[in-house]
Design a protein around this nucleic acid. Structure first.
Lengths: 202, 202
DNA sequence: CCAGATATGTAGTGTTCACTACAGATGTGG
DNA sequence: CCACATCTGTAGTGAACACTACATATCTGG
């Protein structure tokens, strides 16, 4: 029994192109024709490899979060909660206005509200955003235990806050806000985390 | 020359129903069939009254911002910048989890990314969000002039920040965050505005 | 070189979409 | 009661959609 004809395209390269299309047009706004053209393949190859349109989105999301995982690790490796928030939000200001990608964040642009039949697309995106929030929360729990955050602070609320600001910045970026505007937002936002921090010399 | 047969439905009532459909499914996810059913009319009535699907969206957005205008006036009527931000964000926590409406904000859920042919829908929504931001900015400019905000503060950046947090909270609400979770985010967010405020006894 | 297995390109499939032609209904002005 | 204008319901329109049948091509194992 042979192993069949080998695939003629690189799935990861194709996913990078698909990511861009979903990023720019959203799940429902992206058509199979646009996706296949960007990926450089024909519909049967797409369906053989990813199952269907939603399967392709999930694969693209997997790749997206995998690519961003290393960066998130750097973010939570910062020495203080304040610095974690600063790295996170300043990094987001950069990334969401990187001309190499569509503006904003795929986990938001992908689809916040969808039509009947695609209801779980928003859930899928929300779940991936929640992963980042959980990572922040765990880091802030540690910061509180270390005395870096005040005893009265709520690490889960802080993580949710930073996550909310990130999402808001992404929407702004997608509607034309430039890098400097986002940096200013990040700068203000960090001050709330600072207000929850202790005054220990760093 | 007669005036023709009178309309059998109330345009505002119909718009309220259309708003809800756009809010829940987004512009592209909402179908004419869903809209006409919710509005209790047939397609020809819809097109005669609103032109096309995009015209209906604009009319629904007009009604949405009109209904919310009174509330925004109350928000900026607060005595201090801090109180403005608190009213705004706490009010948003309430509104975006009001079971009478779909979760989140129509100006975001309506469509952040759209397919080819609907490119100006995201622009349209962004323009309406910018109106709120401008209103906040003007209020913060006044607060700075009054000595309520520090001389080093940037009213435009503060307004952009509050707007970003609002949007982020809306996305969270749409993905299931409950009222208490949003209140906590608002609570943290206000502290950044507080950090930009002077210490005058209020 | 053959059999089995998987990938590819062409050319569709049925369905759903936004939108409308048309005929009948209901109003106003004379 | 009539001419005219606007609305309403029925029943579609062509286009675009996600997805696929099928013949052909390219691999492995024997």
């Amino acid at each position: 029994m042979g192993m069949g004809r080998p695939r003629e395209f690189d799935a990861d390269v194709a996913l990078d192109q698909a990511m861009e299309v979903f990023w720019r047009h959203g799940y429902e706004g992206a058509t199979i024709a646009q996706l296949t053209e960007a990926m450089g393949i024909n519909p049967p190859s797409l369906y053989a490899c990813f199952g269907n349109k939603e399967g392709l989105l999930k694969a693209a999301l997997d790749r997206y979060t995998k690519l961003r995982g290393a960066w998130m690790d750097e973010v939570v490796a910062a020495p203080t909660a304040r610095e974690v928030a600063a790295r996170m939000l300043m990094g987001i200001a950069e990334k969401q206005t990187d001309p190499a990608n569509p503006p904003g964040c795929l986990l938001v642009q992908g689809g916040i509200a969808c039509g009947t039949g695609s209801e779980n697309v928003p859930f899928e995106l929300a779940a991936r955003r929640a992963q980042n929030e959980d990572q922040l929360r765990d880091r802030f729990i540690r910061a509180k235990a270390e005395g870096d955050l005040k005893p009265t602070s709520d690490p889960a609320a802080l993580a949710r806050y930073v996550s909310a600001v990130s999402v808001g910045m992404g929407v702004m970026a997608s509607s034309g806000a430039d890098r400097e505007a986002l940096r200013q937002v990040a700068d203000v936002a960090v001050q709330a985390v600072e207000a929850q921090s202790t005054d220990r010399a760093s």
